[in-house]
Simulated scan of single mutants.
Amino acid sequence: MRARAARLRRPLAALSAAAAAGLALTALRPGPPPSARVLAAARDLPAGATLGTSDLRALDLPPPAVPAGALRSGAAGRVLAGPVRRGEPLTDARLVGEGLLRGYGPGTVAAPVRIADADTVRLLHSGDRVDVLAGPPSSGPDGLPGGDGRWGAARVIVSGVPVVTVPRRGDEGGREGALVVLATDRAQAQALAGAGPALSITITGP
């Protein structure tokens, strides 16, 4: 029995040493790298889209890669100020709201406006100032002038308001005209919302 125990002692000691070494390596092995979970676009989305739950997915990023203003919740029901690509992290500056208007004065709101002439919108850049006009010329039957013999004059809805953002070409999903987001006060935003679909702009300066 003693001889048998002596023969087994050495293999058992080796097994114990191996097990201890394995436990030590496990303890020293670094854990998974830290990550932060943010919201990203689940598919390509156009400017002006209202986000639904199917448009969003969770994305784990290393903390240094998380963009400023990244959204972690509360994006459903919000409106995109510009187009986003599939997998792109969503930030407050991508949505119509306070983040988009950082740097503007108090009481400013972001007003998305669809302009009939898309080519004119493509000339705009953030910071440009524009007048928005409404109303095609008044006309009688068959497109002839109205009863007074003259074309109606377009009316100015807002004047000298700054452009916040403009969608890129090709991101409008085939819709007519083009979207531009303007920084206005609430009264101007209400006036634009009630001005009808035939809106045009003139560029008044940077």
Rank of each mutant, 00 (worst) to 15 (best):
R122M: 09
R122G: 06
L123S: 07
L124D: 00
L124A: 00
S126T: 08
S126G: 10
G127M: 06
D128K: 00
V132M: 07
V132L: 07
L133G: 02
L133R: 02
G135Q: 01
G135K: 01
P136S: 06
P136A: 09
P137Q: 08
S138P: 06
S139E: 13
P141D: 13
D142R: 09
D142L: 12
P145T: 14
G147D: 15
D148W: 14
D148L: 15
G149D: 03
W151N: 05
W151V: 04
G152M: 09
G152E: 09
A153R: 11
A153C: 10
A154P: 12
A154Y: 11
V156F: 04
V156G: 10
V156Q: 14
V156A: 15
V156R: 13
I157Y: 03
V158E: 02
V158F: 06
V158N: 01
V158R: 00
G160I: 04
G160T: 04
G160V: 05
V161F: 01
V163Q: 02
V164L: 10
V164M: 05
V166W: 00
P167E: 05
R168C: 10
R169A: 15
G170Y: 11
G170P: 13
G170L: 10
E172V: 11
E172N: 15
G173K: 03
G173W: 01
G173R: 04
G174N: 02
G174S: 04
G174A: 02
G174R: 02
